Amino acid sequence: MHTIKKDLQLPSQTLKLQGKTRTLTAAKWTETALGYVFLFPSLLLFGIFLFYPLVQSVYLSLHETDPRGRVASFVGLDNFVAIFTSERFYKSLEVTGLFTLLTVPTGIALALLLAALTHNHLKGMRIFQFVFSLPVVLSVGTSAVIWMMLFHPSVGMLNYMLSLVGLEPVAWLTDPRWALLSVSMMTVWMNLGFNYIVLLSGLQSVPEEIYDSAKIDGSGPFRTFVQIIMPLLSPTVFFVTIVSIIGAFQSFGQIHILTKGGPVNATDVLVYSLYQDAFINFRFGTGSAQAIVLFVLILLLTVVQFKAFERNVHYQ
């Protein structure tokens, strides 16, 4: 009798387990579908404003277009061949690289210095933190107009300050020797607010116990910052570096307002060269090909940075 009862119970238990499994599977599918429902508005916006333009750029890069942007003929890789055989492309690439070297290390170092100086809890530090964060609220156009006034050859503040110390005025935006440096100065200031906020947040996330332990061990402020705080801050610095380099390669607004790529193509970065080909000369195929090349360059540069430098980042 006991054997018969056990044999009868086994199928019922199996049916119950199968029922629970089906219920869990149905709940999982329902939860997944609900997640996609909530994601759909974001996916729709990404599709319209990101994925569709990307696909359209690839399509246009393989075609020649008329001045109205309509496809005229299929040219294959001719647009890419024209880019890589053009001296202007390599000159723009050189200018972009120099612009990145002038802006990224300087901007990060200055923001890190200001964050370290204003990290303490002394009275009045909130005012300095507010002032150093201000550039983040200004648009590129507003920042460029402010600096255009500062760079003015006759009534600009910079040349006035030079005259006070007996130095000759500088043609900041019209001299090829100074134009890229001038735009770089403005870009460092413009990005200072974002870099400062991110790095200050990273410093504030370091526990106070670490500072207290370093003081007990007799470590000075400089040694504590270099040997203890910087490794803990390395993920934040790495993030700021990646974002700053990508931003430098995509810089356009300040160059368009201040110099328009001049003088003598001294500030003709890749994005501005792309803009001139597509929207000034109406060569949308060549402009799209340059956009694809720029995308690939930024992607490769980001991958190289992750492979080369992420090993030195300490996440714990």
Rank of each mutant, 00 (worst) to 15 (best):
I4E: 09
L10S: 08
P11T: 15
W29M: 07
W29C: 06
A33D: 05
G35A: 04
Y36I: 10
F40K: 00
L43N: 01
L43T: 00
L44K: 05
G47N: 11
Y52C: 07
V55K: 15
T65V: 08
R70S: 08
F80Q: 12
A82S: 09
A82N: 15
F89Y: 09
E94F: 13
V95D: 05
L102P: 09
V104I: 11
T106V: 15
T106Q: 03
I108F: 07
A109I: 15
T118L: 06
H121T: 02
G124V: 01
M125I: 10
R126E: 06
L134K: 06
P135C: 03
V136G: 03
L138C: 03
V140L: 01
S143K: 01
V165R: 09
G166H: 04
P169W: 14
T174I: 07
R177W: 02
R177S: 12
W178L: 02
L180Y: 14
V183G: 02
I197H: 02
L200I: 14
G202F: 07
G202Y: 10
L203C: 05
E209D: 10
A214H: 03
S219H: 12
G220R: 12
Q227F: 13
I229C: 00
L232I: 14
V243R: 08
I245C: 09
I245F: 12
G247N: 10
G247Y: 05
A248Q: 06
Q250K: 15
S251C: 01
P263K: 06
P263I: 12
P263V: 11
T267N: 01
Q276V: 15
A278G: 15
F282M: 09
S288T: 10
Q290P: 01
I298Y: 05
L300V: 15
